[in-house]
Design a protein around this nucleic acid. Structure first.
Length: 566
RNA sequence: CGGGGCGUAGCGCAGUGGUAGCGCGCAUGGUUUGGGACCAUGAGGUCGUGAGUUAGAGCCUCACCGCCCCGACCA
């Protein structure tokens, strides 16, 4: 591609609205064009990159036994009502009315259609397993689109669905997909972490996310320094540091006027925060729930919501707390009744805690479980913390930010049960099909790749997903000899199968061209100029490296192939 | 949905009641040419939309729309 023929241009000034690097550089480089909040046009450079990602995904999905299909975006809402997911998705679901005033859904995902498809074609265990997949546009009316292509309302996704006869089959399909995913990220040049993830409202047993580490990521992952334990913070377990055992002392009231927070309490009493119990009040689908946890830990709301099986979980308002008879700042499980009490198992890991007395300006010393208080549920609901011990080995947990670039789920029989997807086993008995689903957001993967690979001048594309391999910069192109040489190199490299973007602009200065080359971030920059031609050579430089080399004209293609495969 | 910010030329912005501007980009001509050159001339604007206040509104008032950021939310 010649720069002068490209329908886009680069910008000189940073777009003011874009804060995340991937967003800023994609706009600045003319890779994407915003049409509405969370809705973008993909322009030639981005599109080439996206097509390369798709090609890698297709190859790996096919190699793993997938079969590409194409399902409709437009779907009758009845499908979603039957599965119950029109409610679960709520206003994230894009809907519209057709001419007969029937409500149609712009599909956010395709389990429903896959299930109906399976009802038609899956009749016997002989028909299983199968893994249909597609690459297609999804629509989700996100509450807050953000960060360019990171979170959008219309996006391309590869979604695959495994249909199996039994749990072992699901396990095999799941592992095959997990391996395909590892291959995909590796081939894209992107080191993604596979981490245990929360499986969300639909449930199911297992779920893993693929996270690309990047400081601007929305997710936090906990990884072990020693073994390969890795989990999303929402799901992660850390070993809670136990406290030395003490002889239980008698419960004792202490006056603590104005002391409300754990920090204040610890300071006031002259004890560490882990010698206190924190009380937190939640509203779970309208019911106020009392939650207690050791003072040095925080509640993991995802774990709590899963345990309570709540659709909506949020901190209770002051009014709700008051109506429930709780005294904020001085609450504890001691003597508490008539309200659901949930405790983190950290209450077991210490003794003689300082807790609220359930009356104003008063705390209790030496509270011990279960001597002094009881709870309805006792389980792990704590947020893992960096520095805690790994649940699997002697290692220590570290935390890092990252972007979710893939998610795989063992769905189990949720859809089969709800929508009636069955097959006959060897004995002629009807069995539910066991499902798994596997998604990769294509555009987000591109954005995440840029989040992870950029500097202050622009993008550093990993070679496998770069729109072109080589950025040819022609300087002094008003000199006919240089122009001829540059054109010649451009033509001959394409013949060698090396994809080139050729900056053939006559009027731009060297500085402008170099800056654009840095912005676009193709793996290798090739400069042709009067200067290089004096020695019948061109200059080659890898993006991100300072040093460049001169390569003789006759061996340019060879030299480039070396550089690109390095 | 709660909080904050912003809508003026393609991009970035100034303009606090009195002729709509600046920088970049764009067009033409010329001089330049290895890290965002220079000179000259020029094109380009329903000032987000609608009502209102005023003799007069880009500017004041109200409503609406859109976009960004934080949070909530996110099979």
């Amino acid at each position: 591609m010649r720069f002068t023929k490209l329908i886009t241009k680069t910008m000189r000034t940073d777009p003011a609205e874009a804060e995340m690097p991937s967003h800023r550089y994609m706009l600045k480089a003319g890779m994407i064009y915003q049409v509405a909040s969370g809705v973008y046009a993909y322009l030639p450079l981005a599109w080439r990159s996206l097509r390369k990602i798709e090609a890698i995904i297709r190859e790996e999905m096919d190699a793993a036994g997938g079969q590409e299909i194409r399902m409709p975006v437009l779907q009758p809402i009845e499908l979603w009502q039957e599965s119950g997911r029109s409610e679960a998705f709520g206003d994230t679901l894009f809907t519209l009315q057709d001419r007969r005033d029937r409500t149609m859904v712009m599909a956010p995902t395709h389990e429903e259609v896959i299930s109906y498809l399976a009802k038609t074609y899956i009749q016997s265990y002989r028909d299983l397993p199968v893994i249909p997949y597609q690459i297609q546009t999804k629509f989700r009316d996100e509450r807050r689109p953000r960060g360019g292509l990171i979170r959008v309302r219309e996006f391309d996704m590869k979604d695959a669905y495994s249909l199996d006869a039994d749990e072992d089959g699901l396990e095999a399909s799941y592992q095959a997909m997990a391996q395909a995913y590892r291959n995909i990220y590796k081939r894209c040049g992107l080191p993604a972490l596979m981490v245990e993830a929360d499986s969300g409202a639909i449930g199911g047993k297992d779920s893993h996310e693929f996270i690309l580490p990047a400081p601007t990521g929305e997710d936090t992952v906990m990884t072990c320094t020693k073994c390969n334990y890795a989990a999303n913070l929402e799901k992660a377990h850390g070993v809670k540091p136990p406290l030395p055992e003490e002889t239980p002392l008698p419960l004792e009231e202490v006056s603590t006027p104005g002391v409300k927070t754990i920090a204040e309490l610890a300071r006031f009493m002259g004890i560490p925060e882990n010698k206190t119990l924190k009380a937190v009040f939640y509203n779970a689908d309208g019911e106020v729930v009392f939650v207690t946890i050791r003072g040095d830990l925080e509640v993991n709301e995802v774990k709590l919501r899963n345990h309570l099986k709540a659709t909506d979980l949020h901190l209770a308002t002051e009014e709700e707390v008051r109506r429930a008879g709780l005294i904020a700042g001085y609450a504890s499980a001691v003597g508490l009744d008539g309200i659901r009490r949930v405790a983190d198992d950290s209450v077991l890991l210490g003794s003689n805690y300082v807790v609220g007395a359930n009356k104003p300006d008063t705390h209790l010393r030496n509270a011990n479980y279960p001597r002094d208080f009881q709870v309805d549920d006792l389980l792990d609901i704590a947020l893992a913390q960096a520095g805690q011990r790994c649940p699997c080995c002697e290692g220590v947990l570290e935390s890092a930010r990252g972007i979710e670039v893939g998610h795989i789920f063992k769905l189990g029989t949720f859809f089969s049960d709800t929508l009636g997807v069955h097959y006959l086993d060897r004995e002629g008995h009807q069995q539910p099909v066991i499902m798994g689903c596997y998604g990769i957001g294509i555009g987000r993967l591109l954005a995440a790749a840029i989040e992870q690979n950029h500097d202050d001048k622009g993008v550093l594309f990993p070679t496998p997903i770069a729109p072109y391999h080589v950025h040819i910069v022609g300087l002094n192109l008003s000199d006919a000899n240089v122009a001829k040489a540059a054109d010649g190199i451009y033509e001959s490299l394409w013949k060698e199968g090396i994809e080139c973007l050729y900056d053939d602009r006559l009027e731009e200065t060297a500085g402008v061209k170099f800056n654009d080359a840095d912005l676009l971030g193709l793996p290798v920059r090739l400069v042709v100029s009067q200067r290089t031609l004096k020695t019948d050579s061109v200059e080659l430089k890898r993006r991100g490296e300072e040093s460049s080399v001169l390569a003789p004209l006759e061996s340019v293609a060879e030299k480039l192939k070396d550089l690109l495969s390095a």
